[in-house]
């Protein structure tokens, strides 16, 4: 499956949502929490790093690629961070993540009065909408 995993972090580094569409390697030390912390640390420090190497101090991090995966990124001004892992030859999905934020996260979570801030999202409608949207992406069928 060309899309592997999706993580959503809040500004404090809590992993609000995690889902996968088939990953062949379990989290390091078989500890999902450890993996979330590592990834959040990576995304967090990336912001500083890109700012330093960018010519005008404004580099918005978009993706990171290794030989085995591509990590697409979208961050909001409020500090939410969306990270999507796909196979390395996929086109950049930052816009898809932005859409996921605006059309799925905002209506199902931000506008939902029952959701506590900083709480892991278990809302079934949200889970379903995320799955529907990601599986409908062209990259998913590649």
């Amino acid at each position: 499956m060309p899309v592997y995993t999706l993580f959503i972090f809040d500004r404090k580094g809590t992993c609000l949502y995690y889902t996968d569409w088939g990953r062949s390697r379990p989290p390091t030390h078989n500890d999902p929490e450890q993996e979330q912390k590592l990834l959040y640390g990576l995304l967090f420090s990336m912001k500083m790093f890109m700012k330093q190497i960018s010519p005008d101090d404004s580099g918005d991090f978009r993706y990171l690629r290794t030989s085995a995966f591509k990590l697409h990124f979208f961050g909001t001004l409020s500090g939410l961070r969306f990270a999507l892992f796909t196979h390395p030859s996929a086109a950049n999905q930052s816009e898809a993540l932005e859409h996921l934020y605006a059309e799925v996260y905002v209506p199902y979570v931000a506008k939902n009065p029952l959701v506590e801030k900083g709480e892991v999202i278990t809302n079934e409608a949200f889970v379903e909408a995320v799955d529907d949207y990601i599986t409908s992406l062209p990259v998913f069928a590649e």
Binding site: M46, M50, I53, S54, P55, D56, S58, G59, D60, F61, R62, Y63, L64, R65, T66, S67, A68, N92
Partner: peptide
């Protein structure tokens, strides 16, 4: 492998 490529809006 480790990182092969990183892209941002300006770099």
């Amino acid at each position: 492998s480790g990182v092969e490529e990183i892209e941002a809006s300006t770099v």
